[in-house]
Structure formats: C-alpha cells, structure tokens
C-alpha cells in the first residue's frame, strides 16, 4: 500500500510539473489558435538560464527563477513580434511549422554553444532534500515545483477571470474582430499572451535544475507531453489541461513501475490515443 501511495504521489508531483508547462501552451492556443511548437525549447532555454546563473554566479534557482521567467517572457514576446504575428489567422499549420523551425534553431544553438552534455547544478538549496510524510517520501525540489505550478495556474486563472486585461484576453479569444470593435488592442493582447505563455514555462524551467540536468534535447519530450496534455484536456481549457496533466503523471508513474520503466511513455501515448478517439475535442472540450 505504501508503495502504491508513493507511486501515486510521484505521479501527481510530476503531473503538476507537466501542468505548468502545459498551461502556457493551452493559454496561447485558447486565445490565438496557435500551437507553439517551440514551447519545450522555451523550457530548455529557461533551464539553461537557471543553470548558468547558478553555475557562474551562484544564484540559487529558488531566486533565479524570476530571471529565467522574465528571460523567456521576452524571448516569447520577441518570437511573437518577429514571427508569429505574421501568421495568426493564417492556417494553423503555418505557425506550427514556423515555431517548429524555431525549436530546431534553439536546440541546435544550444547544442553548438553548450555541447550535448548533461549539466546539473551540483548544489542548490533544494538538491536531494526530502520530507518524510508518514511512510512516504516527498522530494522537496519536486514539491516546490508542484506548489509553484498550482500557484501560477491559480493566479493566471484569476487574472483572466477577473481583471480588466483578463476580460480583454477573453474577448479577444472569443472574437478577435469584435474585441477590436470594443476598443481592445488585440495585437497587444496577443503579444502579452504569447509572452505570458513563455513566462509560465520559464518558471518551470527556472526551477527544474534543482533536480534535473539540462541538455539541448530536454525540452523535446516536455513539449510533446505538454501538447498531449493540452489536446487531452480540450484545447484552450485551463482546468482541462491541469486535469490531463495529472492523469499523464499518474499513468506514467504506474506504468513505469508496474510494467516497465521504458514502457511509461507508451502508456501515456496509448492513453492519449484512446482519449482523442473517444473524445476528439478532449476531456473538457466543448
């Protein structure tokens, strides 16, 4: 029983990590109908920022996540201005292919600059720390990310539901032209949302080096899983992708333990296939 609970706990913690990564993706899709294929690479970039700030300047990820997040916000904002802004409203494939190109560029840039080697910060405040809860063991770095994830999702949700800017975002998502006729600068909203999506994944990437090594390929799998969470949850639904992320985390953990570690993603993708076949619009899709 303890083992079962431990696996469930690990699954949930991992699911919360997926949730904050998926949040940015679902936000961008929900408002702009754009799939950001470079989302995983934004995570990777944030991890490098965090890693280098820790390695060169001894700034702990617990502090430097702010910088990672701001950095990726700016990266995403510039990506929007230079590239995506010309492609919104065009067939979804054009933005997808363009951001795919960007993901390749970022990956290869890091490969070239930082080598393919895994880099892990040797000591951080959180490294290796655990909290015993009864007979279970909570990994502190993972717990911290899970708490951040929950907090960020809550804040983003509240921001969209109850601020003036949030209303402008909602209106833009519902009908861009009608929003413009209300006096909303939808171009500004798009830039903000794309940046915000980057900032969310930037927070995750900023904290991850507390337990995960960074390398140029690290974002690929996260990007893919985030995409699955968003699609399974119902594109654009924040609660949907949170729910799907937890599901993915749990399935991954149980399949990895009870079947075989190499089988865990097979199980995740199988789950994805079954769900999109039964509910093509996702669990919370309309």
């Amino acid at each position: 029983m303890t083992l079962f609970l431990q696996i469930a706990l690990d699954g949930i913690l991992n699911g919360m990590l997926y949730a904050i990564v998926a949040l940015g993706l679902t936000l961008i899709w929900g408002v702009m109908d754009v799939i950001n294929f470079a989302h995983g690479e934004f995570l990777m970039i944030a991890m490098y920022v965090s890693y280098w700030l820790g390695f060169l300047m001894n700034i702990d990820p617990l502090v430097s996540w702010v910088a990672s997040s701001v950095f990726v916000f700016l990266l995403a904002f510039v990506t929007y201005k230079l590239m995506v802004s010309h492609l919104v409203g065009k067939p979804a494939l054009s933005a997808l292919l363009a951001t795919f190109g960007l993901s390749m560029f970022l990956k290869n840039l890091c490969l070239n600059r930082f080598s393919p080697n895994f880099k892990l910060l040797p000591v951080t405040v959180l490294s290796g720390k655990t909290i015993p809860v009864g007979s279970l063991i909570l990994s502190l770095p993972q717990l911290v990310i899970a708490v951040f994830s929950l907090a960020v999702i809550f804040i983003v949700y509240r921001f969209i539901a109850s601020t003036r800017m949030g209303w402008a975002i909602q209106a833009t998502a519902m009908d861009k032209e009608a929003a413009e006729l209300m006096g909303i600068d939808t171009e500004k909203i798009y830039g903000l949302v794309f940046g915000l999506g980057g900032a969310c994944v930037g927070i995750a990437g900023g904290l991850l080096p507390t337990y995960m090594p960074v390398h140029p390929e690290v974002g690929s799998l996260f990007g893919l899983i985030a995409f699955i969470c968003v699609a399974m949850g119902g594109f654009g639904s924040i609660t949907g992708s949170l729910f799907a992320s937890l599901l993915v985390g749990l399935v991954e953990a149980f399949a990895g333990f009870y079947i075989a570690p190499i089988f865990k993603y097979v199980a995740v993708f199988a789950l994805y296939l079954v769900i999109v076949m039964l509910k093509p619009k996702g669990l919370f899709g309309w």
Partner: peptide
C-alpha cells in the same frame, strides 16, 4: 486600427 477609432469616438456595430 479599429480599437483606435473607438477611442476617437467612432464605433461600428
């Protein structure tokens, strides 16, 4: 752009 026109006092239904 339309959002500027709204601020100038021209609104389109």
């Amino acid at each position: 752009p339309a959002h500027v026109m709204v601020k100038k006092g021209l609104t389109y239904v």
